[in-house]
Design a protein around this nucleic acid. Structure first.
Lengths: 258, 258
DNA sequence: AAACACTGTTTTATTATATGAAACCAATAA
DNA sequence: TTATTGGTTTCATATAATAAAACAGTGTTT
């Protein structure tokens, strides 16, 4: 606490001590842990409490994180905040797999690319950050859809169908709503999605979901490359590496079961 | 800004300016809004950014809320933090309906009562905060279950069945897993749950869900009382009042669609 | 191209607030 | 009773926050 300069840093040093493992702190207890004076911590805690950032149990006089933080946390626009955290992880996944790696979210019923790291190999996928692709014929789209709540999933598929958005791109494109729903079910069972040249002949993509604390798929991670490099022997290794990347991201964003 | 004393207050005054409506701020812009000096706000923003509390877009140089807040927000133990916010709302609902009002969450496959406000009438339900009741025979349990993701819902019902937890309490208790799932579907359709003397003869209860930002039911609100006071004419009014209460709570916790 | 307007950033002297020590208070245990 | 353990308040002092001004980079206007 002494080495920290600004009160902003001090404030969050205090807040960081409230973890899932130790969610309640008393004044003296926390002061000892931070190497600070009781009265200093007292003032921090009571100020934070008056703002609703901390909650004070009336009986035990212990503090825990409050609703104000809950509210602020839910205001965070994940798209931009993500990149700083996730980019280094994409890089390590791309280095391991030697294919182009993307991270994307679902937005306006499309797959929206947030970030990518290109394959170090010469032959690679060309894509653009900020652009979007259809849901029904991409591994990213399918994995994100597969883990949605059933209602939402059905509604999206229905909407896509009714708006003639289940466009045929290749002979492999899944264009029937029934088939798509069946595919989504299978994807959820096997825990990863694969796009077998459904958007573009010669292009294969494997995707893995990234969950938030509510087990909802907030984003997805993918590896894509030319079909000839994706023989079935490689798939488990790719899936594995992607999963490790997804885990790393989940840890970074403070993943835990409530 | 000038009237605020502690830097903790100032810090959160800054953070509060990042809303869903205006999620990005530059230094000068925010300084004007807060009536503060540019350099002061610059320090706040860059300190917050160095902690990951704010995210700084490299191109636009604008700040928005960062992942650290997302993480802290997801650590908030809702149970305790809730009460301060929700109790006054429960009180107004109870005053309007003139029945005992409860707020509860799902925990360890049981309905866990967080808070209550008793009916002003003489004849009322006796219950204890901190105690729990079964899911399958209470309006609160059924409404919370009804809005869960389909998988989770089925798993819980299966678990209850396999552990002989679908106990018979009255002749109205739903004890078959099939019937329970059917009931849950109907509850979701009508958007409220009703317990028709399923736990105790003479006791009726109506419940409404409270959603978080992901449209998940984090808690539920209920009105309960003696069966003779719950004739079918009253139900719409009770549901309506409960819904207003749920809305108020959702607003308090910063509810909005992403 | 020059002048201008608009950012974010850094520096500095001054002011205001955060700090720790000690005293105080309340509840509980010995 | 006294001792102990927590939270709370007070106050002189040290320290960090502040505003003003200068600086730097960018894009716009003349």
């Amino acid at each position: 606490m002494k080495s920290l300069k600004s009160s902003v840093h001090k404030t969050f040093a205090v807040l960081e001590h409230f973890t899932p493992q130790k969610s309640e702190w008393g004044v003296t207890e926390l002061a000892k842990h931070l190497g600070s004076n009781k009265s200093t911590i007292y003032r921090f805690l009571s100020d934070l409490q008056s703002l609703g950032v901390l909650y004070k149990d009336k009986k035990t006089e212990k503090y825990s994180l409050g609703l104000k933080l809950f509210e602020l946390g839910n205001r965070v626009p994940l798209k931009s905040a993500f990149i700083d955290i996730t980019h280094p992880i994409l890089e390590s996944v791309a280095a391991n797999i030697s294919e182009t790696v993307h991270i994307a979210i679902l937005k306006n019923a499309k797959v929206f690319y947030i970030d990518k790291v290109e394959s170090p190999q010469g032959l690679k996928i060309s894509s653009q950050i900020g652009s979007s692709n259809p849901i029904h014929c991409t591994a990213l789209g399918k994995i994100l859809l597969a883990y949605l709540q059933e209602d939402a999933q059905k509604n999206i598929v229905k909407d896509l169908y009714e708006n003639d958005a289940l466009t045929t791109f290749t002979k492999n494109t899944i264009t029937g709503p029934r088939n798509l729903l069946k595919e989504l079910k299978q994807i959820k069972d096997q825990s990863y999605a694969i796009d077998m040249e459904e958007l573009e002949i010669g292009l294969i993509c494997i995707a893995i979901p990234i969950f938030n604390q509510n087990n909802e798929p907030i984003a997805a991670l993918s590896a894509s490359g030319p079909a000839n490099r994706f023989d079935s022997k490689q798939v488990p290794r790719y899936v594995n590496t992607l999963k490790k990347g997804a885990d790393a991201i989940q840890n970074q964003i403070g993943y835990f079961k409530p």
